[in-house]
Design a protein around this nucleic acid. Structure first.
Lengths: 226, 226
DNA sequence: AACGGTGTTAAGGCCATGTTATGAGTAATT
DNA sequence: AATTACTCATAACATGGCCTTAACACCGTT
């Protein structure tokens, strides 16, 4: 997995378009991965952890909407930006697509210059907060890339949910995250889980990194301190 | 009522749009409440006391313009920001809408990116004077984000109600808040509590930050001074 | 003195969170 | 394919503190 530049996953069933777009994107310094169908796309997304996914709506097999939905469910994929590529006529798909969690639509036929400016705008949004892959906070080092946490020299192997939860809290030390916000950002928007689920994960985190880092603000949420 | 982040009330009669917009807004950390018609909207506004109301113009029953007018009349709702969602063709509504007290118009079809930047801009406008995350007032620092109050260097850990109460009073130093207003904004509109409840909380606050900041105005309410 | 409004204190209920164990589901390993 | 290890959600119960209440004291006003 290359991490130097921003990673883009490009999904379309037409070879021509893949080549044409990836050529133009690579020329701008993006790291481009391509997939020709939905299944490939999901696999590639898991592996490459892209910043942005460009997704054709109309595809044989898993269509773009489906892929989008699945991506939104995947752990660690909450903040990925998803943009649909669509023929101008397929107007209906906008609604379904937005429901599935799309961030933007780009109409075919695609002009490289237009595409690039849209992409830059999309990526600018998260690049500020999301760029530092590794974070050092008072004895705890969080490495989002390798998905590992080091606590006083010991590398902890946190399970996904625990890692996501810790990473979220630590992304803004001091800020209180409401349970609601935690749920939507770690578990997903429409996932319904029991009341005690968050607590249990907090508990496990505190077990591993100590009681002092995560503080409960009763009736409000949790915050990370150091 | 969650109070951690900025509250948005979303009003539209189409379920699809509600879902799609609330997804995108929640992803950004906003606290979103939805309503499907004008009556619901007014009820929800009373209860949630939103910072921003996104209001569909065309609705069965009470339409957006009407709701807007009523909102502007409601106590404690003076500073709310109201933005209309409108189909591009409904041009006439701009005039009526601005007369009713709208702050902005957003055209459908709505693109998340556009919506979010507009919302941020709108909220930024009042956050300077009114709702900034951190306020510094003569030895007392109130930080909404971290939910903490610092008094002469000491960080106080106020319970939720006490924090909300202090934050409310301090949001407009000098202004007298009627007990009724305090009740509806801190406790919630339809919550019924005894007469002495507010006093007790005032007492605890004075205990912690000193007697000088909160002054009783007999027969009227309380105000914050420094 | 009575009355309306607020201050003060202590006590108890209730609710949000903590805690532990358990089982279903999934991934890794053989 | 079978086995093993592991993650995750839930249920059931414990706990602690926040919030409310109640009862009374203290004003100022009529």
């Amino acid at each position: 997995m290359t991490t130097n530049s921003q990673r883009i996953l490009l999904v379309d069933d037409e070879q021509d378009i893949l080549e044409f777009l990836s050529y133009n994107l690579r020329k701008e310094g993006y790291h481009v991965t391509t997939a020709e169908n939905g299944e490939e796309a999901l696999k590639a997304a898991k592996k490459e952890n892209p910043h942005l996914v460009l997704l054709d709506v109309m595809m044989p097999g898993l269509d773009g909407i489906e892929v989008c939905r699945e991506l939104r469910q995947m752990a660690g994929m909450k903040d990925v930006i998803i943009a649909f590529l669509t023929a101008r006529s397929e107007d209906y798909s906008h609604i379904a697509g937005f429901e599935a969690g799309a961030d933007d639509y780009i109409n075919k036929p695609i002009k490289p210059r237009v595409l690039l400016s849209r992409i830059k705008a999309l990526l600018r949004r998260t690049s500020v907060s999301n760029d530092s892959e590794v974070q050092d906070l008072g004895g705890i080092i969080i490495d989002r890339e390798s998905y590992s946490v080091t606590h006083q020299g010991n590398e902890l192997n946190l399970p996904r949910k625990e890692f996501e939860l810790l990473a979220l809290l630590a992304s803004k030390p001091g800020k209180v995250f409401a349970r609601e916000e935690i749920l939507s950002r770690v578990w997903g928007e429409d996932v319904v889980v029991g009341d005690r689920t968050i607590d249990v994960h907090i508990r496990k985190l505190r077990e591993k990194i100590g009681e002092d880092y995560i503080r409960t603000v009763k009736g409000v949420g949790y915050k990370f301190e150091f």
